[in-house]
Design a protein around this nucleic acid. Sequence first.
DNA 1: CCGCGCATCTGGACACTGTTCAGTGACGGG
DNA 2: CCCGTCACTGAACAGTGTCCAGATGCGCGG
Lengths: 187, 187
Amino acid sequence: MAIAAAELILVREGFAGLSMRKVADAIGYTVGQLYLVFQNQDELLAIINERTTDAIYGRLRDAAESRSEAGPRLRALAGAYIEFSQQHCHRFRMLFEHHLPPSMQPRPSAELRIKRMFELVESTLAPLLPDASPARLRQTAATLWSGVHGIAALAVSGKFKWAGDSDPRRYSDQLVGTFVAGLDVKT
Amino acid sequence: MAIAAAELILVREGFAGLSMRKVADAIGYTVGQLYLVFQNQDELLAIINERTTDAIYGRLRDAAESRSEAGPRLRALAGAYIEFSQQHCHRFRMLFEHHLPPSMQPRPSAELRIKRMFELVESTLAPLLPDASPARLRQTAATLWSGVHGIAALAVSGKFKWAGDSDPRRYSDQLVGTFVAGLDVKT
DNA sequence: CCGCGCATCTGGACACTGTTCAGTGACGGG
DNA sequence: CCCGTCACTGAACAGTGTCCAGATGCGCGG
């Protein structure tokens, strides 16, 4: 399958080294044939990104099931996200660094997957905010998860190098822990 | 100057539309001449990124001076960061989405600038953690700032669209506010 | 078994990218 | 006036995404 070959190239050579000709060569196809299957390169990349989103979601779900209490569960979620970003840094980076041209709108299935991920965070966070309105719960989940994502993004970019300690798990644990503690204060 | 022209193209056409030929044409140079000034395209982009970092630093410093109390000051810092990312989304995106090839190591001045930015956050955070060790202070600053960066990054990518409320300032205020409240709990 | 029609696929072509470098031109000293 | 040196040019190379005229193969009617 073309998608599998493309993912292999992505993992091995990174986002910039992923060209249509390489994918075609890898599976014995012709470039032209590839354009009969995919509308253009962006569609292929978008499909890979959806698969990456699925993979992340799977990791998060597994991590959530490993703990029952809300606090540790959130920490496990964040840790799984960080870990995925480190292990599959090229796939992770492409997911957030590749942008569709304005002429192409994202496929609806892609937005569904993002929504599903946020909802997982939301439902994990819910027990900690029993009295919050749905809107507030959603906003809080988005805030916390953006923070976790920021740690993953900067870690993957190597911007933490200046700090002697470069284990991003420590940052995510501290972020989730402190944020949750702060939530308790306000209730 | 070539850099100014390149920044103009970047702002108008985005990161992907910034080619050496366009820069050369814009200032009446020849491509070859550009390669006498810059070693390659990556160096030009790296220089622009340094200027972007400077611009962000300036905004943060101004924002820090507008408030005296630590809490509001941190909120102002985060707000300025978010605002910059929205106003100069293309420059902001290139700063974090363009990666030097492994063969090129970053210029030392670039790392200095990043360090300077983190130190600004650190010194603003210091009054809230009077008893913390320098290492812990540094880690806490990195954690908080990564979170703020995550909000900016996701907002610029349009990943917040699914949430009805898309004003990223609200997220940053909540993140900083809750995080600081959480810090108080632990002391 | 032959010949025709159709769908499928191919490989080259086009416009673009970063990068290099042989050659052209201008300018100044003898 | 001639020659040397230097700056500069624009063409060339290898790569990219994308498209399409034409070849190629395949099935079916005769």
